[in-house]
Amino acid sequence: MDEFFLIAKVVSVSVKDGLLKLKLFTDHPEKLFTTDFILVDFWGSKKKFFIENVLKRGENYLIKLKNFSAERELSVFIGREIYLKQSDLLPLDDDSFYIHDLIGCKVYCLDKFLGEVKDVLSTPANDILELITEDKKVKLLPFVLKFFEEINPGEKIIFVKADSGICDDED
């Protein structure tokens, strides 16, 4: 059974061009240019739609679906989430990770549990791991590779380097 991963959300339409404007949730939008179809969520059910064209205008990504061009047809997509199957995702370099792979990882400094990754927040400087501690508090860690000894999404475990400075306030 294939898993689905959120990559974008439709934020508006361009009726003149028949395009859907996307808000991306991926660092790898180039996959849109190489896939034949997307899956759109309609009330919990994923429906397949074939791609006619993908455009990049400035920082925006726009997608044209086959057989959809009228305003009434396009307006049903506004606010809908777009998914790809895991088998359609691009393989990543060794030091890159999909956010969905990091969610649920338990984070440790030496043998001390810091928390579980609930989300990864994107900032201009670097990504931030949002952890939930044992006492249900939120803790934010900069996701800078030099601060981590081991990142193993397969085992759902992350080890922070003891000398990173992150563990100093944990006593």
Rank of each mutant, 00 (worst) to 15 (best):
P91R: 11
K136W: 13
E59G: 13
C105E: 07
D119G: 00
F42I: 07
D163C: 03
L39M: 15
L32C: 04
F42E: 13
A8S: 04
L145F: 08
P153G: 02
A70D: 14
T123A: 03
E81M: 10
P153W: 09
K46G: 11
D111Q: 15
S122V: 11
L20K: 10
S14Y: 10
G165W: 14
D169Y: 12
L6F: 08
F113I: 02
F37A: 15
I166S: 03
K64N: 01
I82P: 01
G165F: 14
L19P: 03
L131Q: 00
E149Y: 10
N60K: 09
K136R: 13
Y83I: 07
F148N: 05
L121V: 05
F148K: 06
V160E: 05
P91A: 05
F33R: 12
I82A: 04
F5C: 03
L90G: 01
L131R: 05
K46T: 00
D41A: 03
N126F: 14
Y83M: 04
K23L: 09
V13E: 14
N53P: 00
K106S: 15
L141D: 06
G104Y: 03
I7Q: 03
L110M: 13
G165P: 10
I63T: 03
V13K: 12
D94W: 03
K66S: 11
V10S: 09
F50R: 12
T123K: 00
T34L: 06
P124L: 05
P29N: 11
L84A: 07
K106Q: 15
D17L: 13
L55I: 09
T133V: 07
L129I: 02
D88V: 02
F37M: 07
I103E: 03
S12L: 06
D101Q: 11
D111V: 09
F113M: 08
N60Q: 05
H100T: 00
V76G: 02
L129K: 01
W43A: 14
V120Y: 02
S96T: 11
V76Q: 11
I158N: 03
K118H: 02
F50L: 12
G115W: 11
G165M: 15
F5S: 06
V40P: 03
I99F: 06
V120Q: 07
K21P: 00
L32E: 11
L74Y: 02
A125K: 12
L24G: 04
K56E: 15
K9V: 04
K137D: 06
D88Y: 08
L110V: 14
E73C: 13
I78Y: 08
L20E: 07
K161P: 00
L145D: 09
M1Q: 14
L39K: 10
D17P: 03
L129M: 09
L129S: 04
D127L: 10
D2M: 05
D2K: 04
L55R: 15
D93Q: 15
E71W: 05
N126L: 01
G44N: 08
D95W: 05
A70G: 07
F42P: 10
F68P: 04
L22G: 09
S122Q: 13
K31M: 15
D27N: 11
E134S: 13
N67L: 08
L19S: 09
P29S: 08
I99L: 12
L110H: 08
P142H: 02
H100P: 04
L114V: 02
E170C: 07
L90I: 09
G44E: 05
T35V: 15
V54A: 11
D135I: 06
G44A: 05
G154R: 13
E81P: 03
